[in-house]
Simulated assay, not measured.
Amino acid sequence: MKPSWEKEDEMRGYINILSNAVQRSISYRIDVYFILISRVIGLLVQISIWRALFSGEEYVSYSGGVLSIQEIVTYMMLSAFLSLLINTRVTNTINDKIKTGEIAMDMIKPLNFKYYMIFDTIGYNLFLILFQVIPLSLLALLFFKITLPSIPYMLLFVVSVINGMIINFIMEYVIGVMAFWFIVSWPLQMLHRSLVKVFSGIWIPIWFFTDSVQAINDILPFKYIFFTSASIFLEKLTFHEAYIQIFIQYIWIIVLVLAERFIWNKGLNRLIIQGG
Rank of each mutant, 00 (worst) to 15 (best):
W50I: 07
N95Y: 03
D106C: 00
V133F: 13
L67V: 11
M76R: 15
N95C: 02
E260V: 02
L234H: 09
L138A: 12
G42A: 09
K99E: 06
K223I: 05
F119R: 05
P135K: 10
S38Q: 13
N16W: 01
I49V: 15
R39H: 09
N163V: 00
V257S: 06
T210D: 13
I72A: 01
G56A: 06
S150K: 12
V90C: 01
L43M: 12
L191M: 14
L111E: 11
E10H: 00
W186C: 03
M107R: 05
F199D: 04
E102N: 10
F227T: 01
T100N: 08
H240C: 00
I103G: 01
V255D: 02
I26P: 05
T147I: 15
F226A: 08
L18I: 03
I26T: 13
S48L: 12
R24W: 06
V133S: 10
I122K: 06
I15P: 02
I183Y: 14
Y224Q: 04
I146M: 15
L18R: 05
K7N: 04
F247N: 05
V198A: 13
G176H: 05
L111I: 01
K266T: 05
V257M: 13
S137P: 02
F262M: 12
R261H: 08
S83L: 01
I206H: 03
L237M: 12
L268D: 02
I37D: 10
R24H: 08
V213P: 09
G176N: 05
Q274M: 07
T91I: 07
S150R: 11
F144Q: 08
E8K: 15
E71P: 02
L271R: 01
I248F: 00
I49P: 09
I263D: 02
S63N: 11
T93W: 01
H192I: 00
L188I: 06
P149C: 00
S61W: 07
V257A: 10
I72V: 15
R39V: 03
S4N: 10
F34T: 08
L142P: 06
I273M: 09
Q249D: 09
I94C: 04
S185A: 15
L148R: 01
V255S: 08
F222A: 07
N217W: 07
M190Y: 14
G176C: 02
F209S: 09
M190F: 12
D31W: 14
K223L: 03
L268C: 06
L126K: 08
P187N: 09
I129V: 14
R24T: 06
Q23C: 01
Q46S: 14
R270S: 12
Y124I: 03
A21S: 15
F247R: 06
I98M: 08
T228D: 01
I69Q: 10
V257C: 04
M77D: 00
E71R: 04
